[in-house]
Nucleic acid binder design. Structure first.
Length: 563
RNA sequence: UGGGCCGUCGACUAAUGGUAGGUCAAGUGCCUUUGGAGCACUUUGUCUAGGUUCGAAUCCUAGCGGCCCAGCCA
């Protein structure tokens, strides 16, 4: 091949894997895994890990397992297992092996016995408080436990009895015998097993003891012959321990590599806090369209392609950055622009009466379904004497630069006619409730035979044909770019945006939307992208606003008001 | 303040000792039957100070700044 080398943007993870493949490490084999704990729903931060784990393996002809890190029965549940599988598939990835850390409980137990026999692990009768106290601090070394030098026989006996369920929760732990004065706190005789008489969602009551993350994760990787175990930065301090267990067990040497988590402005990824939002009813469940969960984004109308493109564009490194939400929204718009069918909907209706249009006439106007995709075809939209337009699209006193309808001004009704505003009708409060216009019959479809131009095209629906719909319009869940930015003693819930959800009860929709399927994604022309919510009922669709279209006029107006 | 990790346009990220580039955002213009989309153009950056080198964002030293670690959570 003589083609110029592809100027392919790389990242340090791909470089590491490429180098390993080049040097034929592990015979050039690439095996990764995505290892969620089934204790909550996946969010956009997990999407990054998923794209990396699956995407990179795929690039090198490798394989990826989905493995549930289910070592803490107290917080885990099958509900989460199912949602995680569902979300990974939705994102567009298929795992090769499906495993659970709990599949390895037997093997892990054997390995613990081996370490005890090798004098590398001991049973500690200290209380949790005593262990914490003896661990030392960031600046002071820890102290050896009084139980540290028990005989192998006694350790074996005690550990077997722990496993047999003889002891109550919290009474003993199994610890690795490493170095109580290590500057790395993870190496100060970390706990390997704790006693937990809890029912596990898969192993039931078989085990009264459960391995800790550190004694399960690396070994699980090793058992699955994972070559590249990618995880987030906060685990970097665990890597020496990860390697210590592999070395002292003499098992397959998986390599841990850390990368930075994804952070986004105006949202937050802490599972603990997301759970609070759900449990304290700040949102309507894990799949509330305002949530950064994959199920929330799916319901909101985000596409897997958009999320994948975004993740790829945001890149990966070892810095702690915060990506602007605007970047995510860009990729959502970019994807939806190519595929969403255009349709006309009026969110805040203002009645327009076309005085010179025949009373009982209806015409079928041809409308393009997607100007970005001719294959999407056209559809008929009914037009009649009374139409609704957006309240925003009429101003009795138009400000400078306002091109839409105003007294005496001629505009185009999209795919309809040119109309000119003549007069308004107001209610007792002085609010405009009706605009009377005339139309030019020669402009059918939206073109004037004499070639004259209008400055604006506005959308509309025929009042006689419109169907009612509910539209849920969303803003960011938090009003600050960093929701955790609170005064001393404050709480992130103070930064919840009170305007994050606006329900528009009586939007007027073009009749073709009567049969819109749940999950269907549309562009409401000039407004944004909208997705049909499962709450829809026959004849009364409910739409979620996925993301608004860019609004140049709003920007201009904002700037004018700042002057 | 012990250890670990990290500092490149406003944000994210490339440049792997040799032209500081891309995407988003912002701005300007063109175009437009969506003030959408598209097209063209523009602005802004290597944390600081030394050093090595013909040449440093890249290597070294020091400083400054940020993140992570003291669960029987993951």
């Amino acid at each position: 091949m003589s083609a110029a080398p592809e100027p392919r943007p790389s990242n340090f993870l791909r470089d590491i894997i490429a180098e390993d493949v080049r040097t034929n490490k592990h015979g050039g084999r690439v095996q990764t895994r995505f290892p969620p704990e089934p204790n909550g729903y996946l969010h956009i931060g997990h999407a990054k890990a998923i794209c990396l784990d699956f995407g990179l393996a795929d690039e090198f002809g490798g394989h990826t397992n989905l493995r549930f890190d289910d070592t803490n029965p107290e917080r885990e549940d099958v509900e989460y297992v199912e949602s995680i599988k569902n979300d990974v598939l939705w994102l567009g990835f298929k795992w090769d092996g499906l495993y659970y850390a709990s599949d390895y409980f037997g093997q892990l137990y054997e390995w613990a016995i081996k370490l005890i026999k090798d004098g590398k692990a001991y049973v500690d009768d200290s209380s949790a408080e005593e262990i914490r106290h003896n661990r030392g601090t960031l600046t002071e070394p820890g102290k050896d436990s009084p139980y540290r030098n028990r005989s192998v026989e006694e350790n074996l006996n005690l550990f077997e009895r722990m496993r047999a369920g003889e002891f109550p929760d919290g009474s003993r732990v199994l610890r690795a015998k490493i170095d109580m004065s290590s500057p790395n706190l993870n190496m100060r005789d970390p706990v390997m097993y704790r006693i937990l008489h809890a029912e596990h969602h898969r192993t039931g009551n078989k085990w009264p003891i459960y391995p800790m993350y550190d004694f399960a994760h690396g070994q699980s990787d090793s058992l699955e012959k994972i070559t590249h175990s990618m995880c987030s930065l906060e685990f970097a301090d665990h890597q020496p321990l990860y390697n210590w267990f592999i070395e002292h067990l003499g098992i397959f040497p998986s390599r841990q590599i850390e990368f930075d988590r994804l952070s986004l402005t105006y949202t937050m990824m802490s599972k603990r806090k997301l759970r609070r939002l759900v449990e304290e009813d700040h949102v309507n469940g894990w799949d509330d369209p305002r949530m950064p969960t994959l199920s929330g984004m799916r319901r909101r109308g985000y596409t897997p392609e958009a999320i994948r493109n975004f993740v790829a564009a945001a890149g990966v490194s070892r810095t702690n950055g915060i990506v602007e939400l605007a970047m995510l929204e860009h990729f959502v718009r970019e994807d939806l622009n190519k595929r969403a069918l255009r349709v006309m909907a009026v969110l805040r209706p203002l009645k327009v009466v076309i005085d010179n249009y025949p009373e009982n006439q209806t015409e079928e106007m041809d409308a393009v379904n997607n100007p970005e995709d001719v294959a999407a075809g056209t559809r008929k939209v009914p037009f009649s004497r009374v139409v609704y337009i957006e309240q925003d699209d009429f101003r009795e006193e138009p400000p400078k630069g306002y091109f839409r309808l105003s007294p005496g001004r001629e505009v185009r009704l999209r795919y309809g006619y040119f109309i000119t505003a003549k007069s308004v009708v107001k209610n007792d409060n002085g609010e405009i409730v009706e605009v009377h216009c005339t139309y030019d019959p020669t402009t059918r479809g939206g073109n004037a035979p004499d070639g004259r131009k209008v400055k604006s095209t506005i959308h509309w629906v025929s009042a006689a044909h419109a169907i009612d719909g509910v539209v849920r319009s969303y803003e960011t869940l938090f009003s600050k770019p960093n929701p955790d930015e609170v005064d001393e003693g404050g709480d992130f819930t103070e930064n919840l945006n009170p305007l994050s959800l606006e329900v528009i009860a009586n939007a007027q929709l073009e009749p073709s939307l009567a049969t819109a399927p749940v999950g269907g994604r549309y562009q409401f022309e000039r407004l944004g992208y909208f997705c049909v919510d499962p709450d829809s009922t026959p004849g009364k669709p409910v739409f979620n606003r996925t993301v608004a279209l860019k609004d140049t006029w709003a920007k201009v107006e904002r700037k004018q008001s700042q002057k």
